[in-house]
Write a protein that binds this DNA or RNA. Structure first.
Lengths: 216, 216, 216, 216
DNA sequence: AATGAATGAGAGTTCATTCAT
DNA sequence: GATGAATGAACTCTCATTCAT
């Protein structure tokens, strides 16, 4: 009885170990020079053993992507629940900052989720759950009249663009002479969010705006 | 003499042809399944011939990246000179839009320049020339007091993040349910730029700001 | 006691089941792409379990061949006993036809017995029992003076050649534009047998003939 | 100039050498345990080199089959032209004997052509050219009234069955206690042919017969 | 009796690269 | 300048088989 359990646990641990090693190699050597053999050697098993846990290279890679997405999603969901006392704009900014921070603290996860390989046609829905958090936070800002009556969807997408931009650049261009990281991130977030805010002299505005107040 | 010249020209043409074919294969089949043999076959030369023009696969790939960077740079430089009559903010926005448009119209170039593979440690300077245009345009806005007295460098970087974000997402996630592309791009740009603008009631502000007016 | 019996029976049943599944895979996918793993999967047992019943792949295969031989033999033996009323020539022809029919109705058995793989050096005796029926039937024809006094052994072998030829060709060349199958089989049999028959004007002939009456 | 020619010749020779080695391995070890690597080792080249001459294992195997068919065909065609003085029945018997002899003298060729692997669905026409010789020879016997007016097609097929039967059995069952080979072959041929012959007392028969004179 | 895990060997194939010609 | 031949190394993946449990 116990033996079976132990075996199951051992198997799960091994799978985890494989995933970890694979992730490391993928990131260190790039997708193109990852190989099942290298992986096997790294974990001190025969190449065939990997196939006891993953159907093939593709499935192994997909598992890594999935894992990374899940971690990002979980990080964001933690946000949605906490910070109950904050006002919605602050909460949104906290969320955006959390997204970026997740990427910078877990660059490998971010790489797998967004950068490593052009995503396959199938499984596009995977982005949605993470994106729903964003929609929710933006929606709250509009509902509570902290934002101009902007379109929630397009605003969410624009904000995503901004934070994805800074996250991916900082990860992929580490040698660029960036200004202080904290300052840069704040600026990206403030730039993107502040222009959405309802200011006293605009309070009477109505109708949905696409956040294009400037006539320029 | 003439013969030598002709030969030189032929060589250059062949090199161009190789690069074009390589680019096509890289983009169509992905980096992973590009091979020197396929390339040779495509241009109807022997595999060995390619090595007369490129030391190895790596160098060939680098040439493609370089080429794409140059095209982006040239597209941006054209901007710097034109549009003399526009006010600096409009000019900046035009520039940002041009960057995005270049990426969307030449996704392969953009991929090579920024997305396809993590850049090598060497050659970090390559981003600079393109980035100088941005600094220049932002600088003009500050000088002419259309922007608050923000830090030019950090602002330029923040703007770059925004436009890189939307460009890369649109290229790499074509199946995501984006809102209308034009509208989305406008929103990204306006979001990022508008909050930088000096508004009548802020004109007296002094000192360099990092564009963090919001107390949030 | 009973338990032991039950267990023994279970074991035998399982062995039968393995053989059946193996036969199916061998025939459907060809010898080359049969594998112990596929077999195990098919019968919902672990690969190791097969080795409790067969020493290795080779022995498993041999068992299939044996089985098929036995079935052929049994089919032929049924003949020897029946048809008591027929005259020996008719009986022989019935036997030859039965052999061919067995092959065509059980092409898999025939394949295993004769076609699938060159037989191993050992176990040559295996052909004999089946072949004895043939010798017996030919012998009767000679004894009862329906055949010229031909050599029973060489005649039997020649007849076997003829019926093996048509059987294997029909099995292995199904796309060849054969004439009507029944007609073809009859012709092969009649061609082979009729020239052996003693005709009224030859009745006085003596001595063993190798069935080579023609001077050509 | 000369160099190019020499190279071409060398390439052709190498291809021949590969085919010869492959044939040997295929026959010695059986189709299932032939491997490109074994072949490479045998000819003292790298595995990759084989692929300079054959697209893949399948194509290599098909080349061998083709080669063997061609040799058989050529052997039979030589017959058609010679032996002008013989009467048609003798000529037919010579042809049948030649077919068998070819198989026994070139068992590997015969194996490739007919025995080694169940033929692919495509390329069924391949049997025809060889078979045409048979039709021609049988046709002559009928035309010249040496045979009863049998159906040429079905008779040819029946004869083919007989000679294929003895050829393949002698090749694949070398350990069977055959009677003297020459005697056995003669008996198969005579058995099959003699019953087709027109005998003086049958000369008045008309209409096409399927060679089933016996009422048995 | 049966299993799950593991392995070593090996399969076919493709690759970047070299080099004599 | 260009080639064709060649290679050694690598690839993904499957195999028959073993053995502790």
């Amino acid at each position: 009885m116990n033996a079976i359990l132990r075996r199951k646990q051992h198997k799960a641990e091994l799978k985890t170990q494989i995933l970890a090693a694979a992730r490391e190699i993928f990131v260190r050597d790039g997708y193109e020079s990852f190989s099942m053999r290298k992986l096997a050697q790294r974990i001190d098993y025969s190449p065939g053993s990997i196939y006891l846990h993953f159907k093939n290279k593709e499935e192994l890679f997909e598992s890594l992507v999935e894992e990374s997405f899940d971690r990002l999603l979980r990080a964001l969901n933690r946000l949605k629940n906490g910070h109950a006392h904050q006002d919605p704009v602050a909460k949104l900014k906290t969320g955006l900052r959390a997204y970026i921070d997740f990427g910078l603290r877990n660059p490998n996860d971010y790489r797998f989720a967004f950068l490593l390989r052009r995503p396959l046609q199938r499984r596009p829905y995977k982005v949605h759950p993470a994106f729903d958090v964003m929609r929710y936070l933006v929606g709250r800002c509009v509902e509570e009249k902290r934002f101009r009556p902007v379109d929630v969807e397009s605003t969410s997408q624009a904000l995503w663009a901004a934070i994805h931009g800074i996250t991916s650049l900082l990860i992929q261009r580490p040698t660029f002479p960036w200004v202080a990281r904290r300052q840069l991130i704040d600026q990206v977030i403030n730039n993107a969010v502040d222009s959405l805010m309802l200011r006293p002299d605009q309070e009477e505005e109505t109708g949905v705006s696409h956040a294009q107040p400037s006539g320029v």
